[in-house]
Amino acid sequence: METEESRGLKELSGLMGRFSRFWSIRPFRWSRKRALVTTALALLLVVVGVLLWRSAHRSEDRVWERIQRSGVWRVGMDPSFPPFESLDENGRPVGYDVDLAQAIATCWGVEVSFEGIGFDGLLAALWADKADSVISALPVDPRLARDVAYSVPYFEAGLLLVVAEGTTDIAAPDDLAGRRLAVEWGSEGDVQGRELRRRLPDVSLLPFPHPQDALTAVVAGEADGALVDAISLRQFRQQHVGVHAVGAPLVSVPYVVAVPRHAPRLLEAVNDALVDLREEGALQRLEETWFGQ
């Protein structure tokens, strides 16, 4: 009499038989079906493995965990570039980036500890674990994207075409044909101006010793436009009126926060904070504070 147990055993042995027939390697025959199933299984294993590895590593962010645990966020900075960062008379760091770091830290409920580091050594400080992040008017360097992680930009410092208020017929560099373009002699604006003149030979290039002089020439009507960086323009507009930028930057120089490559949760938190600060208008207020606009 066949018991339930013996039926189960028979079914199991049948299954194993089919399995062993399917996988029997003696004599070994690579049927197309077997090859397909084997390949599919191998691929599945690889995909699952990769997903598991990624999720395990994604959740692991010792930098972020340390910040949370200690309540201190170490920010590397070279305080020699006002108004972004400099030292006040008491030796304390002040500036746009200082306030930005404080605002981000407030979002997280932690304190900021500013680490003074020379500009050329800022990213090395991340690798050497001397800082958790760098906020120091730092432009993106795509070549280092494998070594550090960059946040979304918080400030665009690139090269702008600037015209006098009321100018309606210059919206792009090509509109400068037959006109006068002011640049700082030897600067990136000069390089771009010379490049423009190769395309439009009737552009007159007017070199000045300082970007402020180039902008003054625009206000005075001595030049029809100027190519200057966004910081120089903002600083000029602190004390002068009558000029504004048109179009997108000719050369983009976005400032970002840099974090270690192995700190994905910290990067996510920085990005979230920057988005929130932008939406709340806090970044605009920082500009008003430090550039008076």
């Binding site: 070279d78 570039f81 500009f119 002699w185 600067s187």
Partner: peptide, 16 residues
């Protein structure tokens, strides 16, 4: 040197 923020740098025009 005419780096925009190196403390021993000069303006590009001065450098030239």
């Amino acid at each position: 040197n005419d780096h925009p923020r190196w403390t021993k740098a000069v303006r590009p025009g001065q450098r030239m």
